[in-house]
Amino acid sequence: MNRQSSLPFVFLVPTIALLAILALTPTLYALSMSFTDRSLFSPDFNYIGFENYLQLWSDRRFLNSAVVSVKWEVITVTGTMILAVGLGVLMFECASPRARNIYCLIFLIPVLLPRVCAAFVWKFAFHPLYGIVTYPYRAITGKPLDLLADPTSALMVVAFVDIWQWGFFFAVIIVKLLESLPPQPIEASRLDYARPWQIHFYITIPMLRAPLISLALVKAIESLRSFDLIYVMTRGGPGISTETLDMYAFSQGFIESGKIGYASSIAVFMLILTIVAFTIIWKKVNK
């Protein structure tokens, strides 16, 4: 296999060079823009050093959006993993292999759905007056229920949609992982009259520790792409209660004032944070 050949160079160099150019050019450009007072509306700009970055720390909306982003990551990652593990185990225990295949196909649907569509479907389902989800509440209490207009629940509703998209998908993966485990330990503990949940809690889940951590990490990375859901469902509102970092950067750059220099500094902040964090975690996990 280690015969000298030009193949790896021919196959890798152009592709990786192109990827590097496509990824590094905008990143470096963003970095340079973040040191300017550049506005969307005028071609002239000045380099202002670290002023944008200093301003971030006294900007309450930036600080708020950082907190919202962290909340978003925590809620969606834990929610997805809980749903996925629970449902995966349930499918493994309660469904025949045939039924399992059908469930697996069904549970793949949400993640394939364009997020714009998922957002719209659920936004209408949560509509205070006409929504199908809020209908039971309306029928019982006679009052409307406007969860997306309430700062305390809006983020949860959007996170729910995200979990709906990813949790079912991961459940499918987890059931496949469970199927791939050696059957002997499970059989042995069944003979010891262990309850199904005990088997999974003490035996199978610990055996799947490594892939589960990888899955959580993948979800954490994908959760960074919250923008489309939030954009369609709340626009960061009510108030700023669902304004994540990317939503805020977009607002600053395109909706409100056209400050693309300032928006770039938010984006760069996010970029550095995620690259550093995920590189460290990923390398550690995949040791």
Binding site: R61, A149, P151, P238, G239, I240, I255, E256, S257
Partner: peptide, 14 residues
């Protein structure tokens, strides 16, 4: 627009 966001925060009780 800046006032709009702050006012929305007030209206929704944030």
């Amino acid at each position: 627009n800046r006032w709009g966001i702050i006012l929305e925060e007030l209206i929704t009780g944030q």
